Amino acid sequence: MTTATASPAPGTRQPRGRARRAAVLEAARRLFAKQGFKGASLAAIAQEAGLTDAGLLYHFPTKSDLLLAVIAEGDREQDEALEKVREAQGLPLLERMAEFGADLEADPILTALDVTLSAENLAADSEINRYFVDRYQRFRDMLTTAFEEARRAGDLIGDFDPAVEAANMTAVLDGLRLQWLLSDGAVSMADGMRAYVGGVIARLAPRA
């Protein structure tokens, strides 16, 4: 049995085509993050990328195609950031979460894009809504497993619910992310996550 191979995206066979496509994705990421999907027009994105409208449409025939490509690229980068966390398990993974706020601060445009798109698609039954619902579920599942493993290892003790702790940690990270954006960085995600994760571990760790 042969496996079908997906055709390359339009314009990606030559270095110039790849560079133009990358420029469109970067411009779309910036404008979607600032103005949202509905507010950012294809014409404005083309101008930002230094292309004609026709040049943009050659790479991305519809605005939805462009949005999905931006999300896929962002997802790849988020996965790279999460790999730093997934290398650990149990308590070491939770301890590594203390630095996840700093990871998000390092890419402000992607962080803003996530907040903008998730807010725009909060109640919509759409592919974007399902994307964020699934990603949040995977993130909570990862943290829930880490709390369970830490308890089995005896690193954390007490009558706590791993799923509740995972949801709370996710909520704190989300809240800090929003405050960081609205305060133009005055509220630190990095400091906030370090303090929160340290407090959770201190609360649940065995007493010396």
Rank of each mutant, 00 (worst) to 15 (best):
V200C: 00
A167P: 03
G154I: 03
V133N: 14
Q47C: 04
A27D: 01
G36D: 07
Y58P: 06
G74R: 05
A40P: 05
A153G: 15
T5Y: 13
L117G: 04
L182Y: 08
R177N: 07
P92K: 10
Q137G: 13
Q137R: 14
G90K: 02
R76P: 01
A22D: 03
L204E: 01
A153Q: 07
D103F: 12
K63C: 12
S188L: 03
A19Q: 06
D103L: 11
E127H: 08
S126G: 11
A23D: 02
Q78F: 14
L68P: 00
R13M: 02
I109W: 06
A46T: 02
F160S: 07
L93K: 06
F147W: 05
R29K: 10
T116R: 15
M169A: 14
T62G: 00
A186V: 03
A171Q: 11
T12I: 07
W180M: 00
D125E: 14
I45V: 15
F37S: 11
I128P: 12
F132P: 15
D65A: 07
D155H: 12
E77N: 12
D103K: 09
A102N: 08
I128E: 15
L25A: 01
A171S: 13
V115S: 09
M193P: 01
G39M: 08
F37E: 14
A167I: 14
M97C: 11
D184H: 12
T116Q: 15
A27S: 11
A146P: 09
R203D: 01
E99R: 07
D141K: 08
L122M: 15
T145G: 03
R13W: 03
L68E: 10
D159E: 13
G192K: 05
R20G: 00
S183M: 03
Q35D: 15
K84H: 15
A150V: 13
A119L: 12
V197T: 00
D134T: 13
I71R: 05
A88T: 04
L173Y: 00
G55K: 13
R16T: 11
D184F: 09
D159K: 14
A150Y: 01
V164E: 09
A43K: 12
T116P: 06
D191W: 00
S188C: 02
G158S: 03
G185S: 07
M193F: 06
D161G: 06
L91S: 05
E99A: 07
A205S: 06
A167K: 12
L93C: 08
S41L: 11
D125Y: 12
V24Q: 00
S183K: 06
T145L: 01
R135G: 07
D141I: 02
S64D: 08
I157R: 05
D134S: 11
I201K: 09
G175Y: 01
A202W: 03
L122H: 15
W180C: 02
R151K: 15
R130N: 11
L91Y: 04
V200K: 00
R21A: 03
S64K: 10
T144P: 09
N121D: 10
F60S: 00
M97A: 01
P61C: 05
G198T: 02
Q14K: 09
A186H: 09
I71E: 01
T145P: 02
D75F: 03
D155S: 08
E105D: 12
E127K: 09
